[in-house]
Amino acid sequence: MPSGEKQYSFVQKIWIAGGILALITILLLLIKATFSVLLLVLAAVMVATFFRGVSGFLHRKTGWNNKLCLTLSVASTFVLLGLFFWLMGAKVQEQMVKLSEILPSTIQNARSRINQSPMGQKILQQASSPETMDKAKGLLSTIFSSTFGILGDMYVILFIGIFFTVSPFQYKSGIVKLVPEAGKDKANDVLNKVGANLKKWLKGKLFAMLVVAVLTGIGLAVIGVPMWLVLALIAGLLNFIPNFGPLIAMVPAVLIALMQGPATAGMVAGLYILVQVLESNFITPVVQKKLVQVPPALIIIAQVLIAPLTGVWGIILATPLLVIVMVLVKQLYINRKYVG
């Protein structure tokens, strides 16, 4: 051993190893906490992407000043939402009240129907066991947890989103400045591609949500299901969440249809499945044909992995997060590999 090298005793080595382990643990905990906040930032980026997209559309169609178009984008969005809830709010609120009144009795009716068969009795017995209930409560409390509470999260997302909307280039240039000089051009190009892909994905998703809400509403009205309007709105909104959203939206519709009989419930379930098949195989591929294709299984894996750590925002934002990751991998690894 060289004479200048410092020697450590066994106790000192233990303390050093313990310190390194503690530092790693603290860093992992910080990453976990920070990741939840970063998801809120991502949601704010999506809000800004929407506002900037509407602003760009107005600018292309009218030729007006960018600041005026941006102001109109934000203001018109809030005005249209206000008018929608003012015009439809009374009807939606009435149906929501009916839905909350009917659901408990509908669930009990469904339980009694399932309980009529031996297999159904076993399923209900297993599902209502204390162990299953405790696991379900723990899972739901984890999934539906949030960083600052739902209202707090929405305030943070909207507040940061408006700042991003007003001056996105300032924040983008700040990120680029963190990159070494040799990689600044590449970083700027990658950020532009990430923004473009997020914009395409969001545009396609909003269109798909609208189509799902319209098709579901028409189908439920034709079948004669009560409260079809609020059920269609729920289906459209929850379609933003891949895989799990449509299943969650189908549950109250099927339960309400059960009040009119198993045949009606079957038609409603078939309607929801048909709408999702159309959305998944025809609508989304057409409107997002130039977007980075995200494999459905990869979305489910991301949702399952992220949800226990970050709650509901992980489920909602798993797809745009995957879009960002895939763009980064393509631009920073795959393209460079083939160029090299």
Results as ranks from 00 to 15, higher is better:
99 L>V: 12
100 S>N: 13
100 S>P: 05
100 S>D: 13
100 S>K: 13
100 S>I: 05
101 E>T: 06
101 E>W: 14
102 I>C: 08
103 L>Q: 07
104 P>Q: 04
105 S>D: 02
105 S>P: 03
105 S>N: 08
106 T>F: 03
106 T>A: 13
107 I>V: 15
107 I>N: 11
108 Q>P: 11
109 N>H: 02
109 N>K: 00
109 N>Q: 04
110 A>M: 03
111 R>L: 09
111 R>S: 05
112 S>F: 08
112 S>K: 11
112 S>V: 14
112 S>Y: 04
113 R>M: 10
113 R>L: 15
114 I>P: 09
114 I>V: 06
114 I>A: 02
114 I>F: 01
116 Q>D: 05
116 Q>E: 05
117 S>T: 15
117 S>N: 10
117 S>V: 14
119 M>V: 09
120 G>H: 10
120 G>K: 08
120 G>L: 07
120 G>E: 06
121 Q>E: 07
121 Q>S: 04
122 K>A: 02
122 K>G: 00
123 I>G: 07
123 I>N: 09
123 I>D: 06
124 L>P: 09
125 Q>N: 06
125 Q>L: 03
126 Q>K: 09
126 Q>H: 12
127 A>H: 08
129 S>I: 04
129 S>E: 03
130 P>E: 13
131 E>W: 04
131 E>K: 05
131 E>S: 03
132 T>G: 02
132 T>P: 03
132 T>N: 11
133 M>T: 15
133 M>Y: 13
134 D>A: 14
134 D>H: 10
134 D>W: 10
136 A>I: 10
136 A>M: 10
138 G>F: 00
138 G>V: 02
139 L>D: 01
140 L>V: 01
141 S>I: 00
141 S>A: 06
143 I>E: 02
143 I>A: 11
143 I>G: 01
144 F>W: 03
144 F>Y: 01
145 S>N: 14
146 S>I: 01
146 S>Q: 00
147 T>D: 00
147 T>R: 02
148 F>I: 09
148 F>N: 09
149 G>W: 07
149 G>E: 07
150 I>F: 14
151 L>H: 15
152 G>W: 00
153 D>I: 10
154 M>K: 03
155 Y>H: 04
155 Y>S: 03
156 V>N: 06
156 V>Q: 11
156 V>K: 15
156 V>E: 01
157 I>M: 08
158 L>G: 09
159 F>E: 01
161 G>W: 11
162 I>S: 00
162 I>V: 06
163 F>H: 14
163 F>E: 11
163 F>T: 08
164 F>A: 10
164 F>Q: 09
166 V>N: 09
167 S>W: 08
168 P>S: 07
168 P>A: 08
170 Q>A: 14
170 Q>S: 15
170 Q>R: 15
171 Y>S: 01
171 Y>T: 02
172 K>Y: 11
172 K>H: 11
172 K>Q: 13
173 S>M: 12
174 G>C: 07
174 G>E: 13
174 G>S: 10
174 G>H: 09
174 G>A: 09
